[in-house]
Design a protein around this nucleic acid. Structure first.
Length: 208
DNA sequence: CACAAGATGAAG
DNA sequence: TTCATCTTGTGC
């Protein structure tokens, strides 16, 4: 057993409390359960804290919105974006270090009916949680999940993989929708998985 | 207090 | 390609 493939919840806690990139890779294959739905995480993105990552919500320091990122690892950083979407991150690193991992996509492995009920427009099951906002929608995650401890017995629970994901099955590339820092390949996904979201490079929205 | 931009999704 | 839609942070 290595830190890269956690098998117990305690292992996962230890992994999340370390550097953000290994934590992100280790989150692949983990299960996230909420609202009667469980997904197996297939795609993530790492965000460093204040330490030189302009794409991180915490890079300019602590604010009311990102406060939970500065707390202990394993808690949920949920934020609202584009006027209508929720996205969820797992806080990583030591207490006081504002790094986090954005959960970008997952495969629904339990509670298919509940997931479909929340996303009636979806035709194929692989699209239920294919994308960060879609994942939150499928699980019913919103502001009420902000700051929750994901490793306890709360309403939103993160658990280790049933089977470890092989290092060779992990691909890396630039983060989606990020203005700068295209040089850092901090998006990780399970190679060939159909639930991984489509890459879309960032295009600043034009004012009109 | 005003405003601009944003870690997106769904439809056309 | 375009729009829907609103919070957050920053500047005046």
């Amino acid at each position: 057993m290595t830190a890269a493939d956690p098998v117990t919840t305690a292992d996962l806690v230890e992994l999340l409390a370390g550097p953000v990139v290994p934590a992100a890779r280790g989150l692949l294959g983990c299960r996230l359960a909420a609202g009667g739905v469980t997904v197996r995480i297939t795609e993530v993105e790492a965000y460093a804290g204040t330490a030189g990552d302009p794409a991180s919500h915490a890079h300019r320091g602590r604010t009311p919105r990102n406060a939970v990122m500065f707390g202990p690892a394993g808690h949920a950083y949920v934020y609202f974006t584009y006027g209508m979407h929720w996205c969820v991150n797992v806080v990583t690193g030591l207490d006081g270090e504002a790094s986090a991992v954005l959960l970008r996509a997952g495969e629904v492995v339990d509670g298919l009916d509940a997931a479909r009920a929340r996303r009636p427009a979806v035709r194929r099951d692989v699209d239920l949680a294919r994308g960060p906002a879609r994942l939150c929608a499928a699980l019913g995650i919103d502001r009420s999940a902000y700051g929750l401890d994901l490793l306890g017995d709360g309403p939103v629970r993160l658990r280790p993989p049933l089977e470890p994901v092989a290092e060779a099955a992990i691909e890396a590339g630039p983060r989606v929708g990020v203005t700068g820092a295209h040089d850092v390949p901090w998006r990780f996904w399970i190679s060939g998985d159909p639930t991984v979201s489509a890459y879309r490079r960032h295009v600043p929205r034009v004012r009109r």
